[in-house]
């Protein structure tokens, strides 16, 4: 469990980061909390000759909650998310999800930016950000650009981020209505067997909007537009729940692993989604 030799950099500003990325191209990787990248390097599954630590860059550890929306710096930790009262009031699903990520020790180090940028299908934040229709800010040599979370993920560990770009912030509009992040896992610290992020609004007994994303059930997070659409205009009766579940199952593509075979995962995905919808509805 010893990584191959690498150069370690700790630049003081983003300009320093970008010049290192320009110099070393895809031989360089930036590191936020390091809780995904370092294990991969120790297993020698990730070859990173030039490791750029973002800890000293600054300006990426703020959480702002305002009338124009929510902005979360890339270096904000899962622990920060949990502790931030204004954020929890504005977007309570973030705290509910963060509390289900790993364990406290990991949450003190693991960051939102690292979690969403790495492209690991097991990470919880990518699906959550798709559910919330968040936008990722990428900074590169040519300036910055915004990419919707729903367009960011291409395949496992493959994203819309270019090798010379750094994901610096996550922005989203404060969600409205009810919410739930439901996750089944084998133990603390495990990736999800299946997880569902749900935001839902209602007028009276009618669902007016629903946003649904699933985690660790494909090689990317799955924003299931059809599942949400199946709920809108319904009273969330059993038929609507069944339709939403069927739509979601049409979008996911789980693979067998030690958590279980595909049939099990698909069944559990349906159960977890149904529970998430019911909890979100009860809070809406």
């Amino acid at each position: 469990m010893i990584p191959a030799a690498f150069e370690y950099y700790r630049p003081k500003d983003m300009a320093g980061v970008l010049s290192l990325l320009e110099e070393h191209g895809d031989d360089a990787r930036v590191m936020a909390g390091g809780h995904s990248l370092i294990p991969m390097m120790k297993l020698r599954m990730a070859d990173v000759p030039h490791l750029i630590d973002l800890q000293d860059v600054g300006g990426m550890s703020e959480i702002s909650v305002g009338a124009d929306g929510i902005r979360i710096g890339a270096m904000v930790t899962q622990s920060d998310i949990i502790d931030h009262e204004a954020l929890a009031a504005a977007a309570p699903i973030l705290r509910e999800a963060a509390l289900q990520i790993a364990d406290p020790q990991v949450r003190y180090m693991g960051t939102v930016g690292g979690n969403v940028a790495n492209g690991d299908p097991g990470n919880d934040m990518p699906g959550l950000m798709q559910c919330l229709d968040a936008t990722f800010t990428l900074v590169g040599a040519d300036g910055s650009r915004d990419v919707p979370a729903r367009d960011f993920y291409e395949a496992a560990y493959m994203t819309a981020r270019e090798d010379d770009e750094v994901l610096t912030a996550v922005s989203l509009a404060a969600p409205t209505g009810g919410y739930a992040y439901e996750k089944q896992k084998r133990k603390i610290g495990d990736y999800a067997t299946a997880a569902a992020a749900v935001q839902i609004t209602r007028e009276g007994d009618t669902c007016t909007s629903a946003s649904i994303a699933m985690t660790n059930l494909s090689d990317t997070p799955i924003f299931s537009e059809a599942a949400g659409a199946a709920l809108v205009g319904t009273a969330l009766d059993d038929g609507a729940l069944t339709a939403a579940s069927a739509a979601m199952l049409g979008d996911i593509d789980p693979t067998e692993d030690n958590r279980g075979p595909v049939a099990f995962k698909r069944h559990v995905a349906g159960v977890i989604l149904r529970r998430a919808i019911e909890r979100a509805w009860s809070r809406a």
Partner: peptide, 28 residues
Amino acid sequence: LGQEIAYDDMGNCKTGTLMDFFLPTAWE
């Protein structure tokens, strides 16, 4: 409830890390 050393047909050990080898914590 879950702790095993499992192999695939090629004799690859599928549970070589604590991600897959179940070691309960206080939570479980």
